[in-house]
Amino acid sequence: MESSVAAVSAWLRACSQEFDRRVEELNELDRILGDGDHGTNMQRGFAAAGALDFGAQATAADALRQVGMALVKVVGGASGPLFGTFLLRTGAAWPTPLTVAGIHGALDVGLHGVMTRGKAERGDKTIVDALAPVVDSLAASAAAGLPLAEALTAAALAGEAGRDATAPMLARRGRAALKADRSIGVIDPGAVSMSIIVSTGAHHLG
């Protein structure tokens, strides 16, 4: 599929629907590790993003950057700046036309933006642990010459595996680190949200 505003807007609206559906699941995870409002914050942020006039955006990169700015403004806590930074940085590097290597490059920029903003590394039990495997998967798919749809599906599965792998980790960053003794055995809600964004993207962009 071409790197169109329509494809990106469909992706982001699908994210909004998925956060509507899973708001309580995310809040429940966050009640254990944080303030209990991660799902509500993500739901509110993507509802605001879904209300944006994407028709006014000339490119998909512009649309992604607009959503990133909306998340920074609307989503509370640490999630707004982190997810907003991810979309702002990813949007700034978004490829036209879409290629596996191009999407890898854009998400890699987004990953490093998140790591810098949140001062998080792999294994800290954060959204990085869901996003980094996605970037790794896309790099491998680009090297292997896989078709876009196949590469995106593999990347989404890698993100879900990374999400699940946060369960046994000890939280080292954010509010979850303040409850580190309770964090083992619980999936990080931010990692769940990142996997939602990647999975819906794989469906709509591939």
Score class of each variant (00 low, 15 high):
residue 77 G to S: 07
residue 117 R to M: 05
residue 150 E to A: 13
residue 90 T to F: 10
residue 185 G to E: 03
residue 88 L to Y: 05
residue 145 G to D: 10
residue 117 R to Q: 12
residue 63 A to F: 00
residue 206 G to H: 12
residue 64 L to D: 05
residue 87 L to Y: 05
residue 184 I to D: 00
residue 98 L to D: 11
residue 194 M to N: 12
residue 173 R to K: 14
residue 117 R to A: 14
residue 181 D to H: 12
residue 36 G to K: 14
residue 73 K to V: 03
residue 136 D to V: 11
residue 168 P to R: 02
residue 109 V to S: 09
residue 113 G to R: 12
residue 126 T to D: 04
residue 128 V to Y: 06
residue 112 H to I: 08
residue 115 M to E: 15
residue 185 G to L: 11
residue 73 K to L: 11
residue 40 T to W: 05
residue 115 M to Y: 05
residue 86 F to L: 15
residue 84 G to F: 07
residue 148 L to C: 07
residue 110 G to V: 10
residue 45 G to P: 04
residue 27 N to L: 13
residue 169 M to E: 08
residue 143 A to W: 03
residue 21 R to Q: 15
residue 159 G to A: 14
residue 3 S to K: 07
residue 14 A to N: 12
residue 42 M to T: 08
residue 23 V to E: 15
residue 79 S to Q: 08
residue 3 S to A: 15
residue 19 F to P: 13
residue 98 L to W: 10
residue 72 V to F: 08
residue 182 R to V: 03
residue 118 G to Y: 02
residue 102 G to Q: 07
residue 69 M to C: 06
residue 167 A to Y: 01
residue 1 M to S: 15
residue 79 S to N: 03
residue 124 D to H: 15
residue 34 G to A: 12
residue 99 T to P: 02
residue 162 G to T: 05
residue 37 D to C: 13
residue 28 E to T: 14
residue 158 A to Q: 11
residue 151 A to G: 05
residue 175 R to W: 01
residue 198 V to P: 02
residue 174 G to A: 04
residue 166 T to D: 03
residue 29 L to K: 11
residue 122 R to G: 10
residue 63 A to H: 00
residue 9 S to M: 11
residue 108 D to I: 00
residue 90 T to D: 04
residue 121 E to C: 07
residue 121 E to M: 12
